[in-house]
Design a protein around this nucleic acid. Structure first.
Lengths: 298, 298
DNA sequence: ATTTGTAAATAGCTAAAACCTATCACATAA
DNA sequence: TTATGTGATAGGTTTTAGCTATTTACAAAT
């Protein structure tokens, strides 16, 4: 394979039409440049330079190839320029994976700060279910995940962001609706509305409910938190909702959100990385930024 | 400056996601490839590869740079492909310089054969006056000239193609028009129509005429051979025309072309090259092709 | 014709680096 | 725990890009 340095020599010969000055421009001695050009010619089996005693010029073949050479040099310079740009750890693209029961309620709280603190980072947001996110993270399609931590994720690095309590959602007509707080034990014998299969929130909420002696309402399954909320307000039942999904609700006073007393059901929202991920400076900035944004919110 | 080989290693790592197999694909040992990748990373100050025990993948920076690297590799491959194509001595471009008093009358005789014998050569034809052609040849803008040879061209290499006689052109009414042949001496005291300054034919024709005792007709100067011919047919005078310009004339029986007896005035049409020009195989083919085409014509 | 000056090629050497084999360290799987 | 797969490390060899000094070639000037 040809060498980039040789192409620089060829370029310099064409520019200066003089071995000595071309060598000077390349910061090498004249014999070095002469020798390398000769080697290149030998390697290609072509005469590239027409040597006359007081004049040097490229042969037609050399003329043609110096144009090709300049394409290579341009591409190489572009490579180096990109590398230089990437040296700034706080620039580039960041693909973030989030789950549907978190993303729409979390992002409004954090994206403004992230964009301000890391203006040279392009954030790409990917919403999917936990299982798919973990696969994408593993395959390198995503750089990081923000989701409720589960035991099965221990092969990845974990940075805790905050704990999100789950609260009880009831309609105004429900027996529990008048309470200021509620204890998990009080759910005994109630049936709980749930999300459809595949949402990790479903599994977590059911976990808490089973412990408390409550059962799943098998008649309905919601496809999203918003459907679930609509079902609650329609008096179809009660459910557990993550607290972030209960904030900034525009005039939905048909629903009561009742916090739990200890032991509070909650989920640990964490940032997950492949172990050995290279851009830790950037990640640390993201972690501290998100923590800062969520302080006071939850 | 980066090295192309290193970019190939990076490319291979991305393709195989495995140091051993990438090394195999590059025909080097695994430690060699590992080492070179590490050096590249050190040189750029970037981690390009995420090394996990059983899995290798590129970091976001590596992902970005491997795309750049492939641009470089593509350009380099294009360079080598071009070089290979240029290895065929009978391919490529050939810029030919010709003078206006020869080109339009010579080309119809030679171009068909040239294109057939050298189908992979692209011929570019440049018509200009001798002085400019010599400058362009010297500067490398032209590969070869086809023109009447003159003493002052001895710094270039010369390949004789054919001798072109000059003939006397008269109108039907001119005293000399009845003759089958004419001798230069018979031009004594006639005035000769000439081309404008700068055409080498003008100088050559005048040379013959002065020797013969004829003078220039200063009242008119033609800008081209065709104007000159028109002036002759209009009975404005007589002139010397190169023989090629008298062939294949469509029904111009108002002009007589009279050959000279010995010593015949003529011009030596030669192919001129810079000494040291590299594509001699191609040139020899051109010379023999042109000679062949002109055999019998002149 | 001889001298002079310029520029490229050649000779001979040095140092860098690309590459090799052999081995180590470590994580995963059996 | 052991076996296996995989990348990193160690140490040595060969290649080559680079240097300085010199020679060769030729054009221009004397």
């Amino acid at each position: 394979m040809i060498k980039i340095r040789d192409l620089e020599y060829l370029d310099a010969i064409d520019i200066h039409r003089h071995f000595g000055r071309a060598a000077e421009a390349c910061f090498v001695s004249q014999p070095t440049l002469s020798g390398q050009i000769m080697k290149l010619e030998e390697q290609l089996g072509l005469v590239l330079v027409e040597r006359q005693t007081r004049k040097v010029m490229l042969t037609p073949a050399g003329e043609r190839l110096v144009a090709e050479a300049r394409n290579v040099l341009r591409a190489a310079q572009s490579f180096e320029a990109s590398a230089k740009a990437l040296l700034d750890p706080f620039s580039g693209d960041l693909h973030i994976g989030l789950i549907p029961t978190l993303a729409p309620y979390l992002l409004p709280h954090i994206m403004k700060d992230l964009n301000e603190k890391l203006p040279k980072i392009n954030f790409y947001l990917h919403e999917d279910k936990t299982k798919n996110l973990l696969k994408s993270l593993d395959e390198g399609k995503l750089d990081l995940l923000i989701l409720p931590w589960l035991d099965e994720m221990d092969k990845f690095d974990r940075y805790d962001l905050f704990e999100e309590p789950l609260v009880l959602a009831t309609s105004n007509e429900h027996p529990l609706s008048a309470k200021k707080t509620v204890n998990l034990d009080q759910l005994t014998n109630y049936e709980i509305l749930t999300l459809e299969d595949g949402h990790c929130l479903r599994d977590q909420a059911l976990g808490f409910c089973f412990t408390a002696g409550a059962k799943e309402d098998h008649r309905f399954q919601a496809t999203s938190l918003e459907t679930l909320r609509y079902m609650v307000s329609s008096n179809m039942g009660i459910t557990l909702l993550p607290q972030l999904a209960t904030l900034n609700q525009t005039a939905t006073n048909t629903i009561n959100y009742i916090p739990f007393t200890d032991p509070k059901p909650n989920r640990q929202i964490s940032l997950m990385l492949r172990t050995g991920y290279s851009r830790m400076e950037c990640i640390r900035a993201v972690v501290s930024c998100v923590k800062g944004s969520m302080k006071g919110v939850i």
